[in-house]
Design a protein around this nucleic acid. Structure first.
Length: 423
RNA sequence: GGAGAGGUGACAGAGUGGUCGAAUGUGCAUGAUUGGAAAUCAUGUGUACUCGAAAGGGUACCGAGGGUUCGAAUCCCUCCCUCUCCGCCA
């Protein structure tokens, strides 16, 4: 949610910023709803003020006295008017809230213009992507792949995109999760194991609701949502709380499975481990003082990058253009690994600053040292990292002539041996 | 899942229809006292919206939502959560 004051006072500034995101947004509807709501609020408050004054006067009168009865008769009329106007006020408030929730976050001034993936800026590139081994193939074509990553049985048991990870396949997943968690801890992130079902209020705070229900799995009859990312429970940890300034910044990390319906995906994007409905991810999350949030974003990106460097996977960093930003993001870097067999880049991390957008929805504040008042924190998050695509890249980049996959040195202690075998 | 008891400010805890945004205590802040501290005393100490240049007003919030009433923390209904006992269970 945006600062309502900003929308009222500088609507053209907001309009221009939203245009950079290439989203169709009815700002005037929000402005109109806000004005209407405030006018009605003022009216109701004045009526209530009359009621309160009368109540004070009546408290001093004898219950049965004629003066008392006269007041009751008089206030009945006011009461019914209050009821009527309150109903209108409630409707106006709801309408205003809906309109406000529909407004996206504004991009930061350093975000490049653009509407398409081609307009993202390659911020940096690391490692060699030119040397393609003679046996580099898409990971799903590696002989024996289906033994370790059993999509067929997963489809039988659950549905498409819910693979079983078997034997060394399961072991490499566990090794990656542990590696990511240990590295995060070393970088100062406190580990959390959160619920992986969340309620509607939590999904609203991080921006999945309203509008994006279709991308989440939803349970009945309790209406809980399977998290699409650890960001959701993690961010909501401090929902409706006021933190002490001294407690900031807070760094947390969490391993969770993530669930995505991915309605509308198709083709080569969804082959193999590229896109699945359930996958493992370690999420990094920060709650920070607003003054520091863009420095924190750079550090967050560096933390995520360090993982890829240690795994010796060629990767690049994209600075996302306005049109490629998510609804709630102010600025985002994507980390993409090189999948040598597919000869394409796979996104394995998104590091974003949400500024106060989520914090306002979630009412996460801190007690400012300067003003003594409760102010909204800034939230940031990034993957550190998503398991299946990192795994795909390791398989495709490290496939050796004998059909085995060389495990990066940093991962060997976690995996327990130097090679993964499909035999 | 069943039965019962509860949910009040940072915390404890009073308040069962009117002058209650809410006693009292603790904590915290500032000041007095002190060489300094403790103790003591005094004052202050929530969030949000809104009007105002400011000073200062107004309104809402006693788990959430709805209802009754001229008036609700207080009465009624629904839901959520916590605790105790029972059942079930990794």
């Amino acid at each position: 949610m945006l600062d309502p004051r900003l929308i009222r006072e500088s609507p053209e500034l907001v309009r221009a910023a939203i245009a950079k995101k290439h989203l169709k947004v009815d700002l005037d509807a929000a402005l109109g709803a806000d004005t209407a709501w405030r006018a009605q609020l003022h009216e109701v408050e004045q009526l209530r003020s009359v009621q309160k004054a009368a109540n004070a006067a009546m408290a001093a009168l004898a219950k049965g006295s004629p003066e008392f009865s006269a007041k009751v008769a008089e206030m009945k009329a006011v009461s019914s008017r209050v009821k009527e106007r309150e109903a209108g006020l409630k409707a106006a408030e709801e309408k205003c809230r809906e309109a406000m929730l529909a407004l996206p976050n504004l991009p930061h001034s350093s975000v490049p213009d653009g509407a398409t993936p081609e307009q993202n800026i390659v911020y940096s590139a690391h490692g060699d992507t030119s040397a393609v081994g003679p046996n580099a193939v898409p990971h799903w074509d590696v002989p024996g792949f289906a033994r370790l990553f059993d999509f067929e049985r997963g489809a039988k048991v659950t549905g498409a995109g819910f693979p079983f990870f078997v034997g060394e396949g399961a072991r490499i997943v566990r090794a990656l999760i542990n590696f990511f968690l240990e590295e995060a801890a070393r970088a100062g992130y406190v580990e959390v194991s959160p619920p992986i079902l969340v309620n509607a209020a939590s999904a609203t705070a991080t921006g999945q609701l309203p509008d994006k229900e279709g991308q989440m799995y939803e349970t009945t009859p309790d209406r809980l949502f399977a998290i699409p990312t650890g960001e959701v429970p993690l961010t909501n940890f401090y929902r409706e709380e006021i933190l002490e300034a001294a407690a900031l910044p807070v760094y947390r990390c969490a391993y969770t499975p993530c669930f995505r319906r991915e309605a509308g995906s198709y083709g080569k994007d969804v082959r193999g481990l590229n896109r699945v409905h359930q996958f493992d991810k370690v999420e990094l999350l920060k709650w920070v003082d607003p003054a520091t949030s863009y420095d924190e974003l750079e550090r967050l990106r560096a933390d995520a990058e360090a993982l890829l460097q240690k795994l010796e996977i060629p990767y690049r960093v994209l600075l996302m253009c306005g049109g490629e930003l998510g609804f709630a993001q102010s600025k985002k870097y994507d980390l993409e690994v090189w999948a040598a067999g597919q000869r394409r880049w796979l996104e394995v991390s998104s590091c974003s600053n949400f500024e106060a957008f989520q914090a306002r929805r979630a009412q996460i504040r801190f007690r400012s040292r300067d003003t003594g008042r409760a102010e909204l924190v800034h939230t940031l998050n990034g993957s550190g990292l998503a398991v299946p695509r990192v795994l795909a890249a390791i398989i495709e980049n490290n496939l050796e002539a004998d059909g085995r996959v060389r495990i990066p040195a940093a991962l060997v202690p976690y995996f327990g041996k130097s090679h993964l075998s499909f035999a």
